[in-house]
Amino acid sequence: MWRTLLKYGLIAGVIAGGALLTVSLLYDGQPPPTYGMALGYTSMLIALTAVFVGIKRHRDVALGGVIRFWPAFGLGLGISLLAGVFYVLAWELSMVLIGHDFAEMFGNMMLERAKAQGLQGDALAQATARAEQFVAMYRNPLVRLPMTFAEIFPVGVLVSLVSALVLRNPRVLPAR
Score class of each variant (00 low, 15 high):
residue 119 L to Y: 08
residue 45 L to G: 15
residue 34 T to F: 04
residue 133 Q to E: 14
residue 6 L to Q: 02
residue 140 N to G: 01
residue 23 V to H: 00
residue 75 L to A: 07
residue 86 F to Q: 06
residue 162 V to Y: 00
residue 2 W to M: 15
residue 37 M to Q: 14
residue 53 V to N: 03
residue 122 D to G: 00
residue 16 A to M: 02
residue 101 D to F: 04
residue 74 G to N: 12
residue 162 V to N: 06
residue 132 E to N: 15
residue 129 A to M: 06
residue 37 M to V: 15
residue 113 R to A: 15
residue 158 L to Y: 06
residue 45 L to C: 09
residue 111 L to S: 05
residue 34 T to S: 11
residue 60 D to I: 09
residue 105 M to N: 08
residue 114 A to F: 08
residue 6 L to F: 08
residue 29 G to H: 01
residue 18 G to T: 07
residue 141 P to L: 02
residue 66 V to Q: 09
residue 21 L to T: 03
residue 145 L to F: 11
residue 55 I to N: 02
residue 120 Q to R: 11
residue 137 M to P: 00
residue 88 V to Q: 02
residue 48 L to N: 11
residue 114 A to H: 10
residue 148 T to G: 01
residue 8 Y to P: 03
residue 3 R to P: 00
residue 137 M to A: 15
residue 99 G to V: 12
residue 53 V to P: 00
residue 10 L to V: 14
residue 27 Y to R: 06
residue 44 M to Y: 13
residue 127 A to C: 09
residue 134 F to Q: 10
residue 117 Q to M: 13
residue 146 P to W: 01
residue 16 A to N: 06
residue 8 Y to C: 11
residue 140 N to T: 10
residue 66 V to H: 13
residue 72 A to R: 13
residue 36 G to Y: 07
residue 108 N to D: 13
residue 41 Y to C: 05
residue 157 V to G: 02
residue 135 V to I: 14
residue 59 R to P: 08
residue 133 Q to M: 13
residue 45 L to H: 05
residue 98 I to A: 09
residue 104 E to D: 15
residue 106 F to N: 13
residue 33 P to V: 12
residue 58 H to G: 03
residue 28 D to K: 15
residue 133 Q to V: 07
residue 104 E to C: 01
residue 131 A to V: 13
residue 13 G to H: 09
residue 79 I to S: 08
residue 94 S to C: 04
residue 30 Q to H: 05
residue 22 T to W: 08
residue 142 L to W: 12
residue 3 R to F: 06
residue 174 P to G: 12
residue 80 S to H: 04
